[in-house]
Design a protein around this nucleic acid. Structure first.
Lengths: 226, 226
DNA sequence: GAGTGGTCTAGACCACTGT
DNA sequence: CAGTGGTCTAGACCACTCC
């Protein structure tokens, strides 16, 4: 019982300090929770809280019976916040503008019979992102009665249609002629692309591809310690 | 006390069910923890655990005194695992190959006097990513004695130099002539780019830009429910 | 000021898994 | 089998913040 560490943040800080000081190098096993609690002069639950948070950050690896170790391959684990485009633009102090380009029904390999929508988002009048979206009519029949003329389908979906999970892919691809035209750039220009699919349990909700205008970037932090 | 929900996962599931069922639509306030614990027939700590996890996922918003609400703008919050390039390639069942292209010292706006390294990563012989890295010699003087001829600087840094935080930016940019040559593509081809800066407290450790060969994408999931 | 979430405690039982 | 982390409980005090 060398010192007193009352809060889980203090314990987390002390563990990080020992890792940084190489008292506990990568791969090194930590004492078990009971021993650490005794050393820190606190309850085991408090130690557990601190170590669990570090494990969620990818800094520690924990397994029952095997114990806790400093992660050998400290995979950087970053949390991405993916905002609504309107919020993203307004957060920059710019004015968001939305234009519906087309709205038809068709068939999509994942969504089945679906509403197909293309639209353009502008920031202070400049093209910001081109949206190419399919909304499954089997899952979201109410979409038929929505015009999506003045507001993004994304916002309507978030407010009215629940989803359980989804996946997102980021990539870079050359602009096709039509994409270049809407984004006021040249064909072949590098576009940052996000592809998103969302599901409500096993039913597809929507599939959307966003083409961002050249110069777009997405930023995140790792190991932020406030 | 309608039903019994013993585990925090069960409570989380029930809360999600009510959100999906629109019992609690976006913006709706939840009962406080004491009332929920009584309703679910469990301890308040268990309710707290469930709601805290949902708040970390961005599904709920919690403030002392103000209470808990269903998030009004359900920002998708995704966790990105950023692996070491060698692991990323080997996870695809391919062979990783590393070639040092250059190694000189110079000055960098953030790192100051720094070791400047460029290198190429290959997967099964095909160009995978071009690495352009600066290592601060003020923070990491030991780097001077490292050749980085056969192993990536990233792996050496992770194993030997601690960092406290960093930031990552993703973007799409056209290949310059030299980049195109190393990645065996054409100048102007869209490249997926990651820019990473890491710090040890207030001291810069390394600044690295990775140019990924065309076709690269990065994927993540949201709201995964195992 | 008062209500809410944030956290700590001490103890207990359970679930997983390495040996 | 036995050791470890995972979780729950009941109660308590604290910190923040809205009114």
């Amino acid at each position: 019982m060398t010192d007193q560490f009352n809060t889980w943040q203090a314990i987390q800080g002390e563990v990080l300090r020992r890792i940084h000081a190489r008292d506990w190098p990568p791969g090194h096993p930590l004492p078990n929770e009971v021993d650490l609690a005794a050393e820190f002069g606190c309850a085991r639950a408090t130690v557990n809280r601190a170590l669990r948070a570090l494990a969620e950050d990818g800094i520690l690896e924990r397994r029952r019976k095997a114990g806790t170790r400093v992660a050998l391959h400290p995979v950087s684990r970053a949390t991405l916040d993916i905002p609504i485009i309107r919020q993203e633009i307004e957060a920059q102090g710019k004015t968001h503008d939305y234009t519906l380009l087309s709205r038809v029904t068709g068939d999509h390999p994942i969504c089945g019979k679906a509403l197909h929508i293309t639209a353009l988002h502008r920031a202070d009048g400049a093209p910001f992102a081109l949206e190419d979206r399919w909304i499954s009519l089997a899952t979201v029949p109410q979409a038929t009665s929505q015009p999506f003329a003045t507001h993004s389908a994304n916002e309507w979906l978030l407010a009215h249609v629940p989803y359980t999970h989804g996946d997102i892919t980021f990539s870079a691809q050359p602009a096709k002629a039509s994409e270049a035209e809407h984004l006021k750039t040249t064909p072949g220009a590098p576009l940052f692309i996000t592809d998103r699919t969302t599901w409500d349990h096993d039913r597809p909700v929507t599939v959307v591809r966003l083409f961002y205008a050249p110069g777009y970037s997405i930023r995140t932090t790792i190991g932020e310690r406030p």
